[in-house]
């Protein structure tokens, strides 16, 4: 209960401030300290039952998507099977109109959807953290500019802007990921900015500045490590948001374009068959829900693990 002003940070442990005082062996001491902190978080997370179950399910899904095609007898490109075959031993989820095996397609779509979501989350988090920390640390003009940019992007409907850019440039999966990232960093920037505003007032930041540390060093060595908890949690939750955003955009036909595919594209192409051939819809649907559900639970588990005040799981 040492600190209640920054509930989502892993407590006031300015490790680098102590390191600055012990110039020679400082680095070694520093990394040992950090590992202990990481170990506490890891132990808490490993004991979070719901999060660990979700993690196991997610690992299975990733294996299904990336290793599955190596063992599966049909390729997503192979359209030699009959049109709209019912589920059988050879095609557990049936075939599509053009005679492609649904299970093979599903593996391919899951691959793309996971890749897109990861790229969106990494890029959005990087942008959000850098811009948010700069805004909160430098304040003044930089802060005003970044925050107006956030306001601006929040009023522009991302679905339309993304559709226009994708239509102009290309509908390949990385383009969709780039454009979605452009519209998902604002939340992280706001959180980082708020935490930076309060952290920047602490003595260890002042000490670092007195030692002559520059803006970037203070941000990356002193500020970011102290808010790694909320950054990790939000990056995780962004993955789930991105899966749904990509699926939605592709569903209305304005996201990922063939020959690339995604879960949204697969649902979009097969949902008119939902009454006659429900298996063509329920397969991709189940995968989307499982991905976002497990990631949400993992995010929840991480939040609990990073929260020094939580009592649900012992350290």
């Amino acid at each position: 209960m040492a600190d209640v002003t920054t509930p989502t940070t892993p407590g006031p442990r300015p490790a680098s401030a102590t390191a600055a005082g012990r110039a020679g062996s400082g680095h070694e001491f520093d990394s040992a300290k950090t590992r202990t902190q990481g170990q506490i978080v890891l132990r808490r997370f490993l004991r979070h039952r719901l999060a660990m179950t979700s993690f196991a399910v997610l690992v299975l899904l990733v294996l299904f998507a990336f290793a599955g095609p190596l063992f599966w007898s049909f390729s997503y490109e192979d359209s030699s099977s009959g049109s709209y075959l019912a589920p059988s031993g050879a095609h557990p989820l049936g075939t599509t109109e053009v005679g492609k095996d649904m299970l093979a397609l599903l593996m391919r779509g899951t691959q793309y959807s996971i890749e897109i979501a990861l790229v969106v989350s990494l890029l959005a988090t990087a942008m959000g953290v850098v811009l948010g920390a700069l805004a909160g640390y430098l304040r003044g003009f930089v802060d005003a500019t970044v925050m107006r940019l956030v306001d601006l992007l929040l009023i522009l409907p991302y679905i339309a802007v993304a559709a226009i850019i994708i239509r102009t440039v290309s509908g390949s999966w990385y383009m969709v990921a780039l454009v979605l990232a452009l519209f998902h960093w604002m939340q992280i920037a706001r959180i980082t900015r708020a935490e930076t505003l309060s952290l920047a007032q602490r003595e260890f930041v002042e000490a670092a500045r007195a030692c002559g540390a520059g803006t970037w060093r203070i941000i990356f060595k002193h500020l970011v490590p102290n808010m790694i908890g909320s950054i990790t949690v939000n990056a995780t939750l962004t993955v789930a948001t991105a899966v749904l955003a990509e699926a939605g955009l592709s569903f209305i036909g304005l996201g990922v374009q063939l020959p690339d595919t995604s879960l949204g594209v697969i649902v979009s192409e097969n949902y008119p068959q939902v009454v006659q051939r429900p298996w063509l819809f329920w397969g991709p649907f189940l995968v989307i829900v499982l991905i976002s559900l497990t990631i949400n639970f993992i995010g929840d588990g991480l939040r609990d693990a990073f929260d020094p005040r939580q009592t649900k799981v012992r350290a």
């Binding site: 649902v267 949902y271 939902v274 819809f281 989307i288 829900v289 976002s292 949400n296």
Partner: peptide, 22 residues
């Protein structure tokens, strides 16, 4: 609530539509 958060809107619509037709 957790389940609803994780479902894309269009999938909910498709499911309801198929049950509506039935």
């Amino acid at each position: 609530a957790f389940l609803a958060f994780s479902m894309p809107v269009f999938c909910v619509a498709i499911i309801l539509k198929s049950y509506g037709i039935q």
